[in-house]
Design a protein around this nucleic acid. Structure first.
Length: 357
DNA sequence: TCTGGGGTCCTAGGACCC
DNA sequence: TCTGGGGTCCTAGGACCC
């Protein structure tokens, strides 16, 4: 291969089967067996879904997002494990620490992913070095995508699975992506792909060639042109190493049995609001707005929100506002989920000043 | 397949104001 | 008197992602 000149690259590091891999490190005797992780690990419990499934479980048609009861029917001999977020959090921190020991910029993107910005003439060697270090220190394997921007690198890491390295740049973008369906792009899902197809735009190539003004008319002034931008293989190329500042925070619960008693519903909202308030205090943040979410049976979701009288983290104030907002819902039908969310005040939000002139 | 939990961002319509 | 245009804020919902 020809020698490359030194320049900036974006790498996307994606841990392979992260949750399952962490569980198999703790339960090595389960290696090679169908394992499903989710909820409390009780496959008879309704309204619980799989967080992940090993390749052996996938061979039985099980996949993440599938109700555990369905997974159990498909493969009764599968091992069902409870989800253990603190364990995944800890494993994730170890991986990210390994990445940060390299002379690169690291942007954490969830438990099992990170973007790495590097200036190098050999991105493949860097990718292999990252993989070796992560495996040596954590016994976890990862796939690495290499691109000119985050979008390309993100798609490339999927092509690299499992445990491989794949390069997707502006040079091979068209040949790799043009024939694919638009939902192959990062940010276009099933719904948008369906709407695009209804406009005659089925493939990435067709979307790339579409008229931006026409897209803006049909898909919104920001989204329409953005879809075309994605189809051209463009994307954000800046790796942000400063910690992410959360925009908000929420807690929600799906109940195994529907709630019908209004006092019971209010009690659960009080508990959820209290948790959100404690989380807000723990995060050292302040809330500006409270949103209450109600999901009725069978699956109709409604939200109502209100601005807090003043920016606060006070549990009593947040709970009171949540209960007031709850009062605006129809509670005469069975409820399967309740949630409470807050918007956080952002650090650059200026307090409102009274203008006196 | 009877559908989790936790996030982010965009859009559209209405209120309100000048 | 029946009637414009724009700007901003608020709200609810939707789409997408991990």
């Amino acid at each position: 291969m020809a020698t490359r000149s030194t320049r900036d690259w974006i790498l996307h590091v994606d841990l392979d089967q992260f949750i399952a891999a962490v569980e198999l490190l703790r339960h090595p005797e389960l290696r090679g067996r169908p394992v499903v992780v989710g909820g409390t690990g009780d496959p008879t419990r309704p309204r619980t879904v799989a967080a992940t499934a090993t390749y052996e479980a996938r061979a039985h048609g099980i996949h993440s997002g599938m109700p555990l009861r369905t997974a159990y029917k498909r493969c009764p001999e599968a091992i069902f494990l409870a989800s253990d977020p603190p364990a995944y959090e800890a494993a994730s921190r170890e991986v990210m620490a390994v990445l940060r020991e390299f002379p690169v910029r690291v942007e954490i993107w969830g438990w099992d992913e990170a973007f790495v910005g590097a200036t190098t003439d050999d991105p493949e060697a860097l990718a292999a070095g990252l993989q070796r270090a992560v495996r040596a220190r954590t016994r976890l394997t990862c796939s690495v995508g290499i691109g000119d921007n985050k979008h390309q690198a993100k798609l490339a890491s999927a092509f690299a699975k499992p445990a491989g390295v794949h390069l997707l740049t502006s040079d091979n973008w068209a040949e790799t992506m043009n024939h694919r369906s638009t939902d192959a792009l990062w940010g276009i899902g099933a719904k948008t792909a369906g709407k695009l197809a209804a406009h005659g735009l089925h493939t990435v190539a067709q979307l790339a060639a579409a008229d931006p003004a026409d897209l803006a008319r049909h898909f919104g002034p920001t989204n329409g042109p953005w879809y075309r931008y994605l189809a051209l293989g463009k994307g954000e190329a800046e790796v942000v190493t400063t910690p992410w500042i959360a925009r908000g925070h929420s807690r929600e619960t799906t109940f195994e049995h529907d709630l019908t008693d209004k006092a019971d519903i209010a009690h659960h909202i009080t508990k959820l609001a209290g948790r959100v308030a404690r989380d807000t205090i723990d995060a050292g943040r302040q809330a500006t707005r409270v949103t209450v979410k109600v999901r009725y049976t069978p699956f109709l979701t409604r939200t109502r929100q209100a601005k807090l009288p003043a920016t606060t983290a006070d549990p009593a104030a947040i709970t009171q506002t949540a209960l007031t907002v709850l009062g605006r819902f129809d509670l005469d039908r069975p409820v399967r989920l309740l949630g409470v969310a807050v918007d956080y005040a952002m650090p650059d939000d200026q307090p409102a000043l009274d203008h006196l002139d």
